[in-house]
C-alpha cells in the first residue's frame, strides 16, 4: 500500500518540477497523471501550475525573438576588439 501511495502521490517540489517540464513538453504521461492528482487536492500546486501555464502562454503569444548564438559571439568579439583598441 505504501509503495502504491508513493507511486501516485508526489511532493510539492516534485509537482513544481513536473509542471516546469510540462511547459516544455518533457513530462511523461505518468508524471502528468501524478501532477493532476496533486493539483486536485493541493491549492498551492494548482496556483503554481496556473501561473506557470500563464507564463508559457504569454511567452508564446509574445512571439519572442533572440539573436542567434553566432551573431552574439561576433558582436562580443567586435566589442572586445573595440575596447582593446581604445585602451591602446
Amino acid at each position: 500500500m505504501k509503495t502504491k501511495k508513493s507511486l501516485l502521490f508526489i511532493s510539492y517540489e516534485e509537482a513544481r518540477h513536473i509542471c516546469d517540464k510540462i511547459q516544455y513538453g518533457e513530462a511523461t504521461r505518468m508524471e502528468q497523471i501524478k501532477l493532476f492528482i496533486r493539483i486536485s487536492w493541493c491549492n498551492i500546486s494548482r496556483k503554481y501550475t496556473q501561473k506557470n501555464t500563464q507564463l508559457t502562454t504569454l511567452c508564446q503569444s509574445a512571439n519572442l525573438k533572440s539573436l542567434d548564438k553566432d551573431k552574439k559571439d561576433s558582436l562580443k568579439k567586435m566589442l572586445e576588439s573595440k575596447m582593446s583598441e581604445s585602451k591602446d
Binding site: L64, K65, S66, L67, K72, L75, K76, L79, E80, M83
Partner: peptide, 17 residues
C-alpha cells in the same frame, strides 16, 4: 560593456524588429 550582449542584445533586437 562586457555584459551588454548577454544582458541587452535580445531586448534591443526585439525592440528593433
Amino acid at each position: 560593456p562586457t555584459q551588454w550582449i548577454d544582458k541587452y542584445a535580445d531586448y534591443l533586437y526585439n525592440y528593433s524588429v
